[in-house]
Design a protein around this nucleic acid. Structure first.
Lengths: 257, 257
DNA sequence: TCAATAAGTTCCACACTATGGAACCGCTGT
DNA sequence: ACAGCGGTTCCATAGTGTGGAACTTATTGA
């Protein structure tokens, strides 16, 4: 009845299970899945078995469910991150239109920050390529965002000093991250290079986990002229839409139970 | 009837579709999916719609199907590669047992080679950490494997010379890759560091695509003693099992059609 | 050691839901 | 305008998924 959509109920339910398992980064127990979807234990069990047979979920030795080999397989492909870029492209281009500056997308990978896509500024100056470039994350807006929201493990060793403005004191840096969380966005003024300023904000999944960050960057004077706070708020607002893309609208359906 | 497994036919079929879409790295057309699974167009259409609603597949503007946002989402998580490591762990440990040397796992990422896991040699000497370390791929067995099978785009610029044995000539390097493809494994003798030798082989998906590489490495004298060819063949044999893990057994079922 | 509780799987009759063929729709090329 | 192609919607049918209960294993407590 409810939402009366043509088609497959079983597939719909199985997909919902998969969604829960993949979106919550942590392993899910059988019973938590039963509770959350409100399906009969038997049904849930059968669906999960089917998914497991097809390598869509994997139950670890503790019996908890995690994304299966097909997901790992996809993640290992070089094109995987490109896919994320594709999802993010429209938003990034829109941000570039609005700010007229360079926009970057980064994810945490192997304890470091990896910039995976970029939309260039329309100005001549400021259009450098950052994709794949190795930068000290603590000096960047992207890095601060990922640090602030736990997407990247906090740096333990010395904080490299790139410029006179680079953060090098751990306590002070931690405090800066608190500020990032409060505002919802991060900035880096002349911290990586003199004259280079960036503002970044998080991309979240539906459960709130931060999986990526987007930044707008350009010459410090131009960015200041535009207004750092204005940029930060703009980013947060625009990325809300992107985050929604990654999430799954609850599609509140009256359970038959 | 055939294989008469209890449970969900619809989910099974939908999963099969997903498998096809994810495993073949390239976008799949609707009709190719219909052909390959032998299901009715209507059925296929409905299943794909359900998968699309749940972000498991995504149809691009050309109408072709690719893995959906849930896959991108998972790939963006730092834990994604860790998952691949987990799949590979048993094989890697077995290889380490057999060879008594250090075993490494690498995937291509952003045009570079990323080592994502390691099982240490049981010897004191030779147990260095390579995970996350940035190395010139053309000087490594792992890199050669990924280059040889197109998992990594061929290097364009100058080939960095790390030692007197490093390959620096493009034509010669290309020829070496031909040899790698012929043998099925790659070696790097003193090319990255003097006294360091590695042998690597590919990890494939069911459709033959190479998504990762595994290497065994140690002091040149110990590796030579063991036998490079013997190691190469061992790797190829052991990785067949790992590749199978990533693949999907065809589960030949007589179509009802 | 044994009983009691919990966690998950298998069984089964019922009815709902997925199925495939045909009709239908919207393009593209001619 | 029409034929040809790729894909979706419709519909009656029966095959398949469903939930409750019984059953099987772990886990806990005494």
């Amino acid at each position: 009845m409810a939402t009366t959509q043509t088609g497959s109920q079983a597939v719909e339910r199985a997909s919902a299970l998969l969604g829960l398992i993949v979106e919550s980064g942590t392993p899910r127990t059988f019973s938590s899945l039963v509770d959350e979807l409100g399906l009969a234990k038997s049904t849930t069990s059968r669906l999960l078995q089917a998914l497991e047979r097809n390598r869509l979920v994997h139950r670890d030795r503790a019996g908890a469910f995690r994304p299966g080999a097909l997901f790992s397989l996809h993640a290992a492909r070089p094109s995987a991150l490109h896919d994320l870029s594709e999802l993010a492209r429209p938003t990034m281009e829109h941000l570039s239109d609005l700010s007229r500056e360079t926009v970057n997308l980064a994810v945490p990978r192997g304890g470091a920050l990896v910039q995976i896509d970029q939309v260039d500024s329309c100005y001549m100056i400021g259009a450098a390529n950052w994709v794949g470039v190795d930068v000290p994350a603590h000096c960047t807006a992207l890095g601060k965002v990922l640090y602030a929201y736990g997407a990247l493990a906090l740096p333990l060793g010395n904080l490299e000093r790139r410029t006179a403005h680079s953060p090098v004191d751990h306590a002070q840096f931690d405090h800066a991250l608190v500020e990032v969380r409060r505002r919802g966005w991060a900035a880096s003024l002349d911290e990586l290079e003199l004259g280079l300023t960036a503002v970044g904000a998080p991309v979240r999944t539906v459960d709130g986990t931060v999986v990526a960050a987007v930044s707008v960057s350009g010459p410090t004077n131009r960015i200041n002229e535009y207004g750092i706070t204005k940029l930060g708020d703009l980013l947060v607002a625009e990325l809300r839409g992107l985050s929604a893309l990654l999430g799954h609208q609850p599609a509140q359906k009256k359970g038959s139970t």
